[in-house]
């Protein structure tokens, strides 16, 4: 799949933002007033900013509101609802904290759940796609949730839990990669099944329908070298998990914490880039590509 910057930005930022909201919603850290404002501002910047970024890849962003209509079937629609619910609930909850100095735990909890649900629905947009075998697994929501929650913990300054959660996310990430590498072959979709010509012999894509490119090739066919990918995975894992964990284990300091967050953010971005770039859509088969 084409790693579109807007989508990478969206999932990375909003994942982190909603992760932070989850923690804020359940009262970690228990902040009020100004401090709460800063936390909430960061969370909203990430979550809502990500959402806005996601509209950049729409062909018709001015009609984005129509995306709310199909919640009973469409994960994207559900994501929209969850995001709005989360952002509204947490806004209410945050307003209480910032302006009234009071926490409404029920609202917070509901907001936290909605935030989790947002991340989950986002992940389900990818998970549901049988056409991308690498994504079509329960590991995908697990990964999205783990990254979101661990990143949120990091942001929320949960130095105790965060390392463990980051480690967990790292483990899920490795599992995702390991499974993912065999997913396409395991899916059973091949050029033979795509063309129905397998009975005759070995099928090879000969001439493409057009010598030029097209939407499908731009959107779905992205070839990255194995070596390159391996290097990026190491970088991603190091930045997303290893480095932040080490930084967290060091004596606490704002600079270090900020570094840990930045490192994590960069790691997640690389992970997301790989999430798209390594994902092979079955349609590539028709073009002799994966």
């Amino acid at each position: 799949m084409h790693p579109a910057p807007s989508v990478i930005l969206f999932t990375t930022c909003s994942g982190l933002g909603f992760g932070l909201l989850v923690w804020l919603g359940i009262g970690f850290p228990a902040v009020t007033g100004r401090v709460a404002f800063v936390f909430f501002a960061i969370a909203y910047l990430l979550a809502a900013g990500g959402l806005i970024a996601s509209t950049f890849h729409l062909g018709r962003p001015e009609r984005a509101l129509k995306a709310f209509t199909q919640w009973h079937t469409s994960w994207l629609s559900r994501e929209a609802w969850c995001a709005v619910a989360a952002l509204t609930l947490m806004a209410l909850y945050g307003a209480g904290l910032v302006f009234l100095g009071t926490a409404w735990p029920v609202v917070g909890l509901a907001g936290a759940l909605a935030s989790l649900a947002t991340v989950f629905t986002t992940s389900m947009i990818y998970t549901q796609l049988k056409t991308v075998p690498r994504w079509h697994t329960v590991l995908t929501p697990l990964l999205f949730l783990a990254i979101s929650v661990s990143g949120g913990a990091l942001m929320a300054g949960q130095t105790g839990l965060a390392p463990w959660l980051l480690l967990l996310a790292g483990i899920v990430q490795v599992a995702v990669w390991l499974r993912g590498d065999g997913a396409f072959d395991a899916s059973g979709t091949t050029l033979a099944s795509a063309t129905g010509l397998g009975e005759i012999g070995t099928v090879r894509a000969f001439e493409s329908p057009h010598t030029g490119t097209n939407y499908l090739l731009r959107e779905f066919v992205h070839v990255i070298g194995r070596k390159h990918a391996r290097k990026l995975r190491m970088i991603s894992l190091t930045l997303m998990t290893v480095l932040p964990v080490i930084l967290l284990l060091l004596p606490f300091g704002h600079v270090l914490a900020a570094l840990a967050v930045l490192s994590h953010l960069a790691g997640v971005a690389v992970s997301r880039w790989l999430f798209f770039a390594e994902a092979e859509h079955v349609v590539g088969l028709y073009y002799g590509k994966r």
Partner: peptide, 18 residues
């Protein structure tokens, strides 16, 4: 249509183009 492209992602056959 908002041109989100998701339907094209979901189609295994490459039958949709934005």
């Amino acid at each position: 249509c908002i041109g989100c492209g998701l339907c094209a992602w979901a189609c295994p056959y490459g039958a949709r183009e934005l």
